[in-house]
Design a protein around this nucleic acid. Sequence first.
DNA 1: TAAGATAAGAGGGACAT
DNA 2: ATGTCAGTCTTATCTTA
Length: 302
Amino acid sequence: MEEWYSKNCPRCAQQKMIIDSTRGELFCQHCGLVLEENLEHSGPEWRSYDDTLTQSRVGSPISLAMHDMGLNTVIGNSGKDAYGKPIPLDSRDKIERLRMWDSRTSVNPSEDRNYRQAFSELERLKDKLALSHMMVQETAYVYRKAHLNHLCRGRSTSVILAASLYAVCRKNEIPHTLSEIANLANIDRKVLSRSYRKLVQELDLQLPVADPVKSLVFIASKVDVRERTKRTALNILERAKKIGISSGKDPVGFASAALYISCQINGESKSQKAIVLASSSTTEMTIRNRCKELRESLELKL
DNA sequence: TAAGATAAGAGGGACAT
DNA sequence: ATGTCAGTCTTATCTTA
C-alpha cells in the first residue's frame, strides 16, 4: 500500500517521502509533511504476475466493482466471421437472434441488477470522497460478501453499500465519519449505523480501533494551521494516550480538542466552530468536555 | 461574537432477568 | 429475547466576556 518515493522531503531533507496509495497522499515519514493530496495512482493499475507475459496487457483488468467482474463476452455484430469473410445471409438472422438472447441471459437478473445499482452508487461515492482504486475494490468485495450472506434482505442497496464503504474506511484507518458517509449517500445516520454494526457482526470483520492521531491529521489538513501547532496537538494526544483517559470516547472529539488547545497555546485563533466544521462530526460541546479533561489531567495552562 | 454552562433527550454497550 | 443502568454525545437555550 505504501511505496518508496525517491525524493527528499522539502522540509526535513530526509529521503523518506512515501506514497500512501490507499489515501492518495504523498507524505514524509520523518516529519509528517503532506506534499500532495488526492494523487492519482501513478503506476499501472494492474499487473501480470505471469513471467512469460510480463508487461503484456491482454484484456481489461478483472474488477470486483463491475457487476460481472468485467468478464463478459459479447457476440459482435460486424457481419464477418472469424476469418473476416462476410457471413452468409441465411446465417445472419440466426446469429442476430443468438446475440439478442445472449445479451438477455448473460446477466442473472436479480443478482446482477442489484450489483449494477450498487456499483454505480459506489462510483458516485468514489468521486465525492476521492477514494482510491484499492478502496473501491475492497468495498465491492465486502458488498458482495454481504450480499452472499443475505444481509441485503430488508435493507436498501445503498445502505449496505455505504456500510461496506464505511467498514473499509475503518479497516484502512481513513477517518471518514459515519455521518459524513450518511450525508453523501443520502441515508439516515441511524439506519447506516445499524447496518454497519450488523455487517461487522455477521461478516466477522476485524477492524482496528480508531486512532485519534489519524483524525487529527485529517482535521488539521482542513483547518490550515502551522506545522508547529500540529505537532503540539500530536504531543497532547500522545500524553493523553499514556494516561489512558481516551477509552470509550469519540476519538474525533479528542483530536479536535487537542487541536483547539494547541491553537491556543501557539497563538493561532481558531474557533471551536471552525474545528467542528473541519472534523464534520463532533460538536462544540464535546470539544469543551474533552478540553476540560485534557487541561485537568495534563495540567495545561490556558 | 465566541465560549462556557446547564439541562433534556437519544443511541448504544454491559449486564441481569 | 427483553429491560435496566451508567456513561457519552447531541441539541437547545441562556449567560458571560
